[in-house]
Design a binder for these strands. Structure first.
Lengths: 213, 213, 213, 213
DNA sequence: AATGAATGAGTATTCATTCAT
DNA sequence: AATGAATGAATACTCATTCAT
């Protein structure tokens, strides 16, 4: 009497199952976005029954969280390794290494992070509406370069960076009201100006605060 | 035949109705996030019937888009005004003004932008998972300040800004593959280092640190 | 151009729709029991879409409650009418009328009440397990009749009644603990004895518990 | 090879395991009702694995049945013992003993019986919808007492008993159609009237109703 | 005998969208 | 233009039951 060989073992180490489900979810989230992905898609992708999903996660949001956590851990590990490879004294080097490692890790998984954290709409509306703002900044940077006020190699990329940073800073500030608008503004303004390669315009401002002793 | 005068006019100028619906939607998106907001919530908030929504918009995504457009327009208007108020030659001033205006406009509507664009999850779970990464960067900045490698007043805020910028830059890059990883990395690295108050590390760098003249 | 005549009006007075759904639910609950009846069965029975159910009720339990309320109202109306038809002074007549009206109303809708209130299992297990207890009481009543201790026409029916009453009384008592077991016991005992046509065992009980004389 | 002695014996006498499962089920049925109790709750309560349940019972209904059987047996044993303790000739005494024993046994396990047999909804909605009917009867009994038509010490309790008995009688009748409505009505009516005691027990009570002091 | 991971049919519930009035 | 009752496809989630170990 022939018995079909048990192709797939009925049970697996829990951690392994969990990982498989997470991986299937990740794959689908990346491919089609979070919202349009149904629990059933995930279980089909992981080759388990629907109920099995709920043995490991309580909802789609739950996997999303697990995915985010996993990503953050890995990212931190990479960055830490990169920074520690440099001598303690080389601060700029370490900072640069930090940036490099982070960019690299993100590039490795590209849209993943965004997706994991923001629930990544299928495609942030082809052509990001922010664009009109970023383009405006980009033009300012380019014009300034033209006028030799500063020298920016890639105005568009820089504009994107600055805008993204600004956005984050304001959002973060909004998270802990009341917002000290003056401080926030000064700080952002300072980074903008320094980032294009100049000192913050200390001029007129009498003394908002600290003076060199 | 006497008709009691209609308390609420059954019809209104279309533009006005449209605005009312948008405002109701905005209010709700801000309060509870986009996904959990039902069309019916919006119409209830705008004090119109459910069907009326579809007279002005074709879907929730449609209002979201309209909201985003309106925000972007206003933002651009404010920034432009601020920049144009300065003399053409004052490039740094103009850049600073740009930043100021943008921060200010965002603060005006705080979470709005993020919500409108990212479908804002109810609240990125108090304490943004990115935090562990940002905290790491923050510590690096603080340590460097302690070691007088640079001088950062607000390491946490700066970390948030830099991380946000980095994130945007990578994301943007990912949008138009193939990514020139080398360039991207170099650019981000450069902004990081400049932002903390130094020139990009030209490697040859004789003096790691700026001295006050 | 032929238009199919609108057979079924798309909308109806809310109260009417609600009634139709309740009626469909009742019909099904009676036929197959509450648990096995799916919401979809109900909507199919009422010839409405599934969603319509939730426009009028929030769950199956909700309809069940509405059904119970409706039944109680009708029952009360019938009883009240019957009692008021008799002269105020005729107390026994009124009590008898009460009983008659209640029995009659229940018979009208037979299993309905039970179903509405207890969620009526499809069939209280053909042959009610209580039977062995009731049979025991029934035999006692019959034996007593044989011994001319009393005269009971229908021992089985009486046993059912007494057992049902006893059950209700204990259950009700259990509802408001602490239970005064002594009182409850005395009361039930008294009704038992009176119901078979005698006076309660006259009070003589001096001590709470029996002693040998 | 040394194996640590198993703390909990992996196997037990079957009868014992079975009892443990029944007890766990009973406890849960009493606490939260039958329907909301999951098989898994039961096995957790009995400290066995899910699969073990199916080694002893085939379904939830199966345990329910076993529980009911066990209860009926015990009840019958107690009643029989109580009745047999009295001399054969003392019929009223025996009837009274029957009632006492039954009440006592029920009180011992309070809600158990009802739950085991009727699938006891979590709690027949605090305040039994029947109440409006029972209250009506209760008022009639009280009024009659006031008018010295009879003397009922506890009108509410008596109403509960009579209503419960009536309900059972009708339900039982409905079980074996065709119903002889005339007989049923006469019988119930008779019990009602007898149960309140034919003559107004005028005895001790000086004034039937409260007077203002 | 006992376990508990895995299964998947069964169902309740939601909500964007339509359309007769 | 406005309404809101009605729709029903889409989906999340449950839980009794099985079975490989």
């Amino acid at each position: 009497m022939l018995r079909p060989p048990p192709i797939r073992p009925r049970t697996k180490p829990p951690q392994e199952r969990r990982e498989e489900i997470m991986n299937a979810a990740l794959r689908l989230f990346l491919k089609q976005g979070v919202a349009p992905t149904k629990i059933e898609d995930i279980t089909a992708g992981a080759d388990v029954a629907k109920g099995t999903f709920y043995l490991y996660f309580s909802s789609k949001d739950d996997v999303l969280g697990a995915l985010a956590g996993r990503f953050a851990e890995e990212l931190l590990r990479k960055i830490t390794a990169a920074v520690q490879a440099l001598p303690t004294g080389d601060w700029k080097g370490r900072l640069a290494a930090w940036a490099r490692a982070a960019v690299s890790a993100y590039l490795d998984s590209l849209r993943l992070h965004d997706i994991a954290f923001y629930g990544g709409r299928p495609r942030p509306r082809e052509g990001l509406i922010d664009n009109i703002i970023i383009d405006h900044l980009s033009k300012l940077l380019r014009d300034g370069t033209g006028a030799r006020a500063w020298s920016i190699e890639d105005p568009q990329g820089t504009a994107v960076f600055l805008f993204g940073g600004l956005h984050s800073a304001v959002e973060e500030a909004g998270r802990k009201r009341p917002v000290n608008a003056r401080n926030l503004t000064r700080r952002v303004e300072g980074i903008f100006v320094r980032a294009v390669g100049s000192k913050p315009t200390t001029k007129k401002r009498t003394s908002p605060r600290r003076r060199s002793p």
